[in-house]
Simulated scan of single mutants.
Amino acid sequence: MELPLVVGVDGSEPSMRAVDWAVDEAALRGVPLRLVYASLSERYEGAALAEGIDPPSEQVLADNIVEAAARRAHRRDVDLKISTEVLPEEPVPALLGEGRNASALVVGARGRSGIAELLLGSVSLAVAARANCPVIVLRGSHDSQADAGMRRSIVLGVGEDAHSTEAVRFAFQEAEERRVALEAVRAWRCPAHESAEHPLLAGDPAHHHEQRATETLEAALRDVVADHPSVELRRRVVEGTTREALLDASADAGLLVVGARRRQGHFGLQLGRVAHAVLHHSARPVAVVPQRV
């Protein structure tokens, strides 16, 4: 059975832009699109509805929201299989539940709270930090031209764990489906307290750290690259913080992909500093791919 691509909608303009993006993504993957609205969000959200959606009764509003999202999706791709669902739940548990049977979840950066989209909404953050499937957060308040993003390169952030292949495989698959280049980025830094007198760093401490970063990058890619021979792979080892390296590399990218460790038996938000930072500051869509450890 083909797992659908699930997009959370709430009637806001950011969620409608997420629908545009998700339509193109579902078409590329060859999977159905599922539009989900958590109706209990009404008790928390404001009235910043997208154009064309009137604020009637709660049930009528819920129907209007999913119907408007479905019409928008059909206008973008008349052949795509689309389903809708109104769930009498709060947004986070509703989307987390949907993610158990989804190829990925797509959410806007913010909902209808009226706060500037520069900030990341609590629903988007909670879903990205807890979902069992990849979560794509549509960062960028003016990124409505989803088709343009599909033609841009994919950027992959490679962390310390060279065996965290879920994010790597996700990034390669995205690049292959879009027929774009994949840029794998690994950052490194030379701590200020280290010097050439260190027995392992004799001669050039910086070179030692750069070499380790290169080896980590190669190890992370090794098991996956052969499965995607058509993907143009660019390796990039950068001095500096991981956050700044990824934000700089993805400034003009179609998607930034990062991994997030999920530790069995741990509760609460499980993102890691890098994923948390890029979700808050990236100007481009961010995919958070869970890695079980």
Rank of each mutant, 00 (worst) to 15 (best):
A146Y: 01
N132P: 07
R152E: 10
S144G: 09
N132C: 11
I154M: 00
D147F: 15
I154H: 01
A146K: 06
D143Y: 08
V137A: 04
E160R: 09
D147C: 09
S141W: 12
Q145T: 03
V155H: 00
A162W: 15
R130I: 00
S153T: 12
S153N: 08
A148P: 05
A131W: 07
H142T: 11
Q145G: 08
V137Y: 02
A131P: 00
R151D: 02
P134N: 08
R152H: 08
A128K: 00
L138Q: 05
N132Q: 13
D147R: 15
E160D: 14
V158F: 06
E160S: 14
D161Y: 08
R139I: 09
L138K: 04
V135P: 01
P134Y: 13
G149S: 05
I136C: 05
R130V: 02
L156M: 08
R139M: 10
H142N: 12
S153G: 05
A129S: 07
L156N: 05
S144E: 14
A129D: 02
A128G: 03
A128L: 01
M150Q: 09
G149P: 04
D143W: 11
R130H: 15
C133V: 04
N132D: 09
N132S: 13
I136S: 01
S153P: 03
R130Q: 09
L156W: 10
Q145P: 04
R139Y: 02
R152W: 11
V158Q: 05
D161I: 06
V155W: 05
E160Y: 14
R139L: 07
S141L: 13
G149C: 02
A131D: 01
M150E: 03
V155Y: 01
A162F: 13
A148K: 15
G157R: 06
D143P: 03
E160G: 15
A146W: 00
D143V: 12
R152T: 07
L156D: 03
A129N: 06
G157V: 04
I136M: 07
H142S: 12
A148T: 07
N132A: 12
R152M: 08
I136Q: 01
P134A: 10
S141F: 12
G140Y: 10
V155R: 02
R139P: 05
A148M: 11
L138E: 03
N132L: 09
N132K: 05
P134L: 13
V155A: 00
V158I: 01
E160C: 05
V137P: 04
A129H: 06
R152A: 09
N132Y: 06
C133E: 04
G159V: 13
A131F: 05
R152D: 01
R151C: 06
I154N: 01
N132F: 09
I154E: 00
G157L: 14
C133Q: 07
V158N: 05
R152S: 06
G159L: 00
A131T: 00
L138I: 03
L138D: 03
A148H: 15
I136R: 04
G157K: 14
G149Q: 00
A129T: 02
M150F: 15
A162H: 13
A128M: 01
A131E: 01
A148D: 11
D147G: 04
R152K: 15
V155M: 03
G159N: 03
R151G: 06
S141Q: 13
R139H: 09
I136D: 02
